[in-house]
């Protein structure tokens, strides 16, 4: 087995592929420093070990986590997700966010929410929500307000169709150089899209054929490389024009 160069700083591993067992950080010569570990990392004695395969990410000043593409979503506070109402309780809505447990959406977590005006959601309503709390062993808590207590863009999504994707695809759809297929389609067609980091995206347009085209194009683009995506997009746009 080849041992990776174990250095005291994990900078050599940042944005690199890591696999379970990799030691990214030796704590023995690090003192007076606080580290925050995210998913996929574990402290093992005096070292920080990787627990799952993926890319190691770092955020200043001291946050480390491993990012990978998977079907199951691991809730974490601050994420914007698409949830489906599964059940209504007097205090909470039970919402499925593709996580290991159903999430709670308190009935008062809406802008100007009081006991008087509790929204009525039937089972199967699609919501764009924010994860407020996510602790292990507890059901995650959701909210339909931003940090300032405003409704912002959160709330019910009407019409349209919700497509499933992997968490990796969702992340690329939201990343800052925009997803080439999404960008290209956006220039030609008019549609609405809402992407949840939990591996769901919702598309709406005036014509159902547009919704289907956009949804399938995005789903298909996941397995393509950048060059292939461009070719695929060109082909797609040609077929749209010829219609």
């Amino acid at each position: 087995m080849e041992a990776k160069p174990s250095s005291s700083s994990p900078s050599t591993f940042i944005d690199q592929l890591v696999v379970p067992g990799d030691v990214i950080l030796d704590l023995s010569n690090l003192t007076n420093q606080t580290l925050k570990l995210g998913g996929g990392l574990r402290q093992d004695g005096d070292s920080i070990c990787v627990m799952k395969a993926g890319k190691l990410r770092f955020m200043k000043p001291n946050k480390y986590w491993v990012e990978s593409s998977q079907k199951r979503y691991v809730p974490s506070a601050g994420d914007n997700v698409l949830g489906v109402v599964v059940d209504t309780k007097p205090e909470n809505f039970l919402v499925d966010i593709k996580g290991p447990a159903l999430a709670f959406l308190p009935v008062l977590a809406f802008e100007g929410g009081t006991r008087r005006n509790i929204p009525k959601f039937e089972v199967g309503t699609l919501l764009y929500v924010r994860v407020v709390n996510a602790n292990t062993g507890m059901n995650p808590e959701l909210s339909c307000m931003d940090v300032n207590g405003k409704a912002a863009e959160y709330g019910v999504l009407k019409e349209g169709y919700m497509f499933e994707s992997s968490t990796g695809l969702s992340r690329t759809l939201l990343s800052s150089p925009p997803h080439p297929v999404l960008e290209g389609l956006g220039k030609k067609l008019s549609f609405e899209i809402a992407v949840g980091i939990n591996g769901r995206f919702w598309v709406n347009a005036s014509q159902s054929s547009t919704v289907i085209l956009v949804g399938n194009a995005i789903q298909k683009s996941e397995s393509l490389s950048l060059v292939q995506q461009k070719l695929y997009l060109e082909k797609l746009l040609k077929s749209i024009n010829s219609d």
């Binding site: 599964v86 159903l102 919700m162």
Partner: peptide, 17 residues
Amino acid sequence: EHRLANSLIMTVNERKF
């Protein structure tokens, strides 16, 4: 809750669409 998580969750939007 276990039951709910296991069944296929379809939204109203999907059914209509």
